[in-house]
Computed example of a mutant assay.
Amino acid sequence: MTAPTTRTATLDTRPLTERIDRRALREYRAGLPGEVRPPLMAAIWPAVVLAVLPVLFLSAWWFVLEDGSIPDEPWDRSALILLPYLALPVGMLVLLVRAVRRRSGVRQYRLDRFARANGLSYRPFAIPVALPGLIFTMGGTSVVRDLLWRGGRSPLSVGNQRTTIGSGRNRKEHRWGYVALRLPVALPHIVLDAAGNNSLLHPRLPVAYAKDQRLSLEGDFDRHFELYCPRGYETDALYLFTPDIMARFIDTVAELDVEIVDDHLFLYSPKDLSTLDPEVWTWLMSVVDILTERIAQWERWRDRRLEPVDAATMPGSFPLIRPPRGVAGQGRRLSRRTGWWWVIGLALAVYGWYLIIGDAVRAITGG
């Protein structure tokens, strides 16, 4: 594998913080798509609504006071009901400031210049490509913002994905920052759930895997990661995660979830990874450099479960001494944990309908 063009030692983060040419910003902002820079009225009307509501409510409250239908001393504890409405103008100002900042194009302009300075391409808004990672196969509607990528022999992409599943009250948005690296060879499906980014608001990965696929490794690795590999691939996981590789993962990506699937390695974070923070980019590119160098040795891995191709019968060829590249079917995907709640709910619903229909039949037949 050739070394990546973006090295930490040569990473130029100045475009993320340096002074902006306002004329160049205006020209750049004019070309931003509507998904990134919506019309001004669409950005302002929520703030206008929040500004009008407290005025209407306070007018109604004053009318009640003048009408004399409440005690002579209205400004007692009952007046505390006004506090939420008085807070609406504050919310209006917050929405207005956020809308103006989002439409300014400063974030997109800085990231675009940062990408150009480091041999990367940038797109402020994109529909996710068909990647095999778990956050890309959740279903729902997904968009990627602030996508930076490079091609070549060592492809890399960094972005912030938003996935919306369901609608109405059942609507839920999943937010992930991710890094996607291309591996030199397809590997078994392996997931490392980092303990460092689990919290009450973000407990763990959106997919639960069967517990019998959990593999315990030596040293402190289990304190930082829960490693899952397909059943029967424990020896392969130990070959891939040698002590030096485990040490590198602990030192560099202990705050990130890791997924190896097909010929990709993904890093996931509940926070944005494509940011305007130079320190985040310096850390992220150092992680990419280290992993790119370390995982090069994985190119020698072969799945012994694949049948070797019989090349001895081919004219002018030599017999293969090891299996071809690839992963056998049982190692390509982890088994997911079965969710029994929907089965129980369905059974209860069927039983409920059975009782209702039975009562209706007895009422009609008089039985």
Rank of each mutant, 00 (worst) to 15 (best):
S59M: 05
S59V: 07
A60N: 01
A60G: 09
A60I: 01
W62E: 02
F63L: 04
V64T: 07
V64I: 12
V64N: 01
V64H: 00
L65N: 04
E66G: 02
G68Y: 00
S69G: 13
S69I: 06
I70P: 00
I70V: 15
P71M: 02
P71C: 00
P71N: 09
P71S: 11
D72C: 02
D72V: 10
D72L: 12
E73L: 05
E73A: 11
E73Q: 13
E73V: 06
P74R: 00
D76E: 10
D76F: 03
S78I: 07
L80D: 05
L80Q: 05
L80H: 05
L80T: 06
I81V: 15
L82Y: 00
L82I: 03
L83Y: 09
P84D: 05
Y85N: 03
Y85D: 01
L86K: 01
L86D: 00
L86R: 00
A87E: 03
A87G: 08
L88E: 00
L88T: 01
P89I: 02
P89M: 01
P89N: 03
V90M: 07
G91D: 04
M92W: 01
V94A: 13
L95K: 06
L96M: 12
V97W: 13
V97G: 05
R98Y: 09
A99L: 05
A99V: 06
A99E: 05
V100K: 10
V100F: 14
V100S: 10
R101M: 14
R101C: 06
R101T: 13
R102C: 06
R102K: 14
R102L: 11
R102Y: 04
R103L: 06
S104G: 11
S104I: 09
S104Q: 09
G105L: 08
R107H: 11
R107Q: 12
Q108T: 13
Q108Y: 09
Q108E: 15
Q108G: 07
Y109K: 06
Y109N: 10
R110P: 08
R110Y: 08
R110S: 05
L111F: 10
L111C: 07
L111A: 08
D112F: 12
D112Y: 13
D112I: 06
D112T: 12
R113A: 14
R113C: 07
R113K: 13
F114P: 06
F114M: 07
F114R: 06
F114T: 07
A115G: 08
R116S: 15
R116N: 12
A117Y: 10
A117W: 11
N118A: 08
G119S: 12
L120S: 09
L120T: 11
L120Q: 12
L120Y: 10
L120K: 08
S121D: 14
S121T: 14
S121M: 14
Y122M: 12
P124N: 11
P124K: 08
A126G: 09
A126C: 11
A126T: 14
I127R: 15
I127N: 14
P128C: 06
P128Y: 08
P128W: 08
A130S: 15
A130Y: 07
L131V: 04
P132C: 03
P132I: 02
G133T: 07
G133H: 05
I135A: 04
I135D: 12
I135W: 04
I135M: 10
F136M: 04
F136G: 01
T137K: 12
T137P: 02
T137A: 08
M138K: 05
M138G: 02
G139M: 00
G139S: 02
G140P: 03
T141I: 10
T141P: 01
V143N: 09
V143E: 13
